[in-house]
Design a binder for these strands. Sequence first.
DNA 1: TTTTAAGATTGTAATCATTACAAATAAGAA
DNA 2: TTCTTATTTGTAATGATTACAATCTTAAAA
Lengths: 140, 140
Amino acid sequence: MNRKDAYTILAEYNIKPSPQRMAIMEYLLNSCTHPTIDEMYNCLIKSMPTLSKTTIYNTLKLFIENGAAQMLTINEKTSCYDADTSPHAHFICEKCNKVLDLYYDVEDIFPKSENMHGHLIKSMQVYYRGICKECKKDIN
Amino acid sequence: MNRKDAYTILAEYNIKPSPQRMAIMEYLLNSCTHPTIDEMYNCLIKSMPTLSKTTIYNTLKLFIENGAAQMLTINEKTSCYDADTSPHAHFICEKCNKVLDLYYDVEDIFPKSENMHGHLIKSMQVYYRGICKECKKDIN
DNA sequence: TTTTAAGATTGTAATCATTACAAATAAGAA
DNA sequence: TTCTTATTTGTAATGATTACAATCTTAAAA
């Protein structure tokens, strides 16, 4: 595996490591499901019984401020989180509700310059919605 | 003005008109600010004192189900709404929090086919974040 | 016209994600 | 060690959204 570990990533973004921060970053890196706070909490509490949900909120806020993660506001009810900060889009399946990464075509989507109609563009998010490959099978 | 009126739009989307529905669609059409439920309520209550916030929620849900409006989940706290269902992106200013429409370049962004990596794409949303033209002036 | 049934609107109460806050704990410097 | 600061934690508050039951409207049937 060529993925960097949690400790290295935290260091890269100038985030002082702590057991909680490491565990949360670790979880984000190992999950490809774009977890919600609750999902993280329910899993991590098993190996770290003193963990508080507030800590997860605080930690993710810190990660985002330092550029180590991004918040996805796909769902109007619950935010979910992604430690992959490289340019990519997200596909949300209306049947199974999974959130998948889409790297295809993304180069075309991102603005060539940081300026667009005179506005300064700092970041962008692209959400596709539909039926995923797997769920399409079930329908046929 | 070549914009269609609320009555015509409701008819087009098979939504039975009512004073409340007309007023809400009217408001959406006349505002270019992508209003939240609260903004709509606070304005409409003046001319329609019996209006309930629940009705606004119900009505927008109906509009969305029938394709007459879309919900923008730009903000993690509050959804906002847009009666413009033509393909366009949204720019959110981090300073003044305004949500602006961006039609530029959008053709490039939308998928050429309805298929992408085997997934069926039904809709897409594009959110840019940054500093808008006006707020940039204030900084300099 | 009156009756009736379905649809639309309303207000209140419940839900639930997120945040505020203050106390407890951990880490690091002196 | 002691002192100071950063981090974590639990509880309580906030606030958007939804559930639900009661009321009002509409329009068709009798």
